[in-house]
Every structure is written in structure tokens, then in C-alpha cells.
Simulated assay, not measured.
Amino acid sequence: MPWVESYEGTAYHPNIEADLERQQNIAKEFEHIIVLASFLAGDRLSLASYAHGETGVKERPGIWADLDFNEPQVIKSYLNYCRDLIARFQPDYFGYVAEVDSAFTDINDNRFSKLRELAKTIYTTLKNEYPDLIIFAEFNLGDRPYMKERSEVISALLPYSDIYALSTYPARFEKIAGDASKLSDNWFTLARRYAADKPIAVLETGFHAEHFMHPKLGVKVSDHDQRLLIPGGQKSQALYTKQLLEAAHQMNMPFINLWTVHDLDALFALLEKNDPETRTSMLRLAMDMGLYDQDGKPRPSLDIWDAWLSLPLQTDI
């Protein structure tokens, strides 16, 4: 977050401005636009770092270092940033926080109370200013124990979201462990229990088409310098794609987004070159989830995706 500039109403760093303009140009190619911003840091527990521009992301400077979710400066800065993104992209859907229930499970946690206060202020303010815009928070969908642990947090935050937008990566849960045939029929319908009367959508999801290998986590593999954390395969990915699309149809989801379309091997090679610690990052979970592999070769899941995409759109539901 460019906290300082958004608060003061001054220009962003040229690098940030250039990146936003790049994304705006890409967005012009599409009929429907979803924009997601977030005030949460990567740990999903604390306030986002400072997007400086010259040096990328760093600790929040000066007084910003100690500010909490519900501070007036944070509220003003984040509202200004959201307004700017809405003006730039004119989105159909606007998300103001990512995976808000990822780390918090206790509604009595003082940090959660402050987060909830910020979420309420951001949502209600933006909704009053943009009544026709669908404004949402992003939640997580996991197995039954995972969801039960977060049920109170979800209930506390769902009033500040027009839809129940989900991040879900079933392969990472132990009972599934990369095998889509172990995914129960009620994986997605489980979301209905928590969605109240909100429409359900999938903001991000994916399934491993290759084994996820990690240098530190998982089972040691003979004659290999990495460990096996989560198995994966093209067959399982194709089955999950089919399950996902069938659920989206049956539940009348307004949208689903895959993460990602193309494998990210080249990106992670670049990231690891600039920051060796990326090699041990759990972000690498997304590296081999593409409908296309690292060489651009289509996987079987692409045929399933394209078959559904070619069907006529139902407008009478």
C-alpha cells in the first residue's frame, strides 16, 4: 500500500504509477473487471507494508510503523486508495481485503476487533459512495475442521461483503493431498452453510498439475535435493477443473477465477535470482497450477475449461 501518498493525496512513485497504467491497459481488453486490493500483509494478521516504488515493498515509515487497523490515518489513506482504483478501473466487482479469515480465528482477539472496525468502515463508506458496485471481502474455503474454526470470524465479517468470494486450494489439505478423486461432492456446497444469503463466487483457486517440491517441508525424496510436500498430476487437475465448473453452474456463481492460467516457473526463477529466500516460500505452491505448463503446452484441464466456455450463457436463472 502506498500509505503516505494515498493519505496526503500526492502522486505515487513513477514505478507504481507505471504498473497501475499497465494494468489499466490490460483491463481494457476485457468486458468484466474484478479489482482486488488489500489492507492486510502477507501474514494476514497485520497491516500491509509500504509500497515505496523505488525499493519495492518495505516497512511503513515514520508514524505509519506503529499505526493499527482502526487508526484514522489508515482509514483515510485506504479509502483514498480504493476510490482511486475504482475511478481508474471502473470495475464490476471491487474487493477491499484478501483472505480476511486466513489467520484470524478468534473474534475476541483485540486485533480482530480492530480489523473488523476497519472492514466495516471501508465497506459502508464505499457502498454509500458506489451503491451499484459489488463490494466484497475475500474469504477462504477449506475442509470442515478448517471452516468450523473460522465460523465466528466469517459471521462477523460477512455483513461487510456483497458476495461470499472464496480463495480455495483443496490440494493442500491432508485428506486430499493432491488427489482430486478424494474431493467430496460437498466441498463447494459446504460454502452455503457460511454464506447466509450471499451469492457465492470463487475469486482464486487452482490444483497442482505437478508435484509440489520444497527444499525444507514434506517427505524426503531419495536422490533428490527437495522434499515432496504435495503430490500433483494432470489427471487430478483435470478432474478438479470439472468439479469446479460443475459446482459453479449448479450454485449459479457469478464468476470463478483460476490461479493460474500458465505455470509460473519463469517468474519464480527470476524471483529466486533476486531473492534466494523465494525458493523456500510457500508462494511456490502456485507455480505448477496452469492450464498450460511452463513451456506453454496445453494440459487436459484446458479442454475441459474450453468446453464449458463454449456453452451458451443461461440468462433465465
Rank of each mutant, 00 (worst) to 15 (best):
V4P: 00
G9A: 03
T10I: 14
T10G: 02
H13T: 05
N15V: 12
I16P: 10
E17Q: 06
D19S: 09
R22L: 09
Q23V: 02
Q24L: 14
R44G: 02
R44Q: 10
L45H: 12
L47D: 05
A48S: 13
A48P: 03
A48D: 06
A51Y: 10
T55L: 05
G56N: 06
G62P: 01
N70E: 04
S77H: 03
D84I: 04
R88Q: 11
G95E: 10
V100A: 10
I107D: 05
F112N: 02
I122S: 14
Y123Q: 06
K127W: 04
P131V: 14
N140D: 14
D143V: 09
R150H: 04
R150E: 00
Y164W: 08
T168W: 02
G178T: 01
G178K: 07
D179V: 12
A180W: 01
K182T: 07
T189H: 08
A191N: 07
Y194D: 07
A201M: 03
F212Y: 13
P215F: 09
D223G: 14
R227D: 06
L228Q: 04
P231K: 15
G232W: 13
K235G: 05
Y240V: 05
T241S: 03
E246I: 14
N252Y: 14
L264D: 02
A266M: 10
A266D: 12
A269M: 11
A269S: 12
K273S: 13
D275H: 04
S281Q: 05
K297L: 14
K297T: 09
Q314V: 11
Q314F: 08
T315H: 13
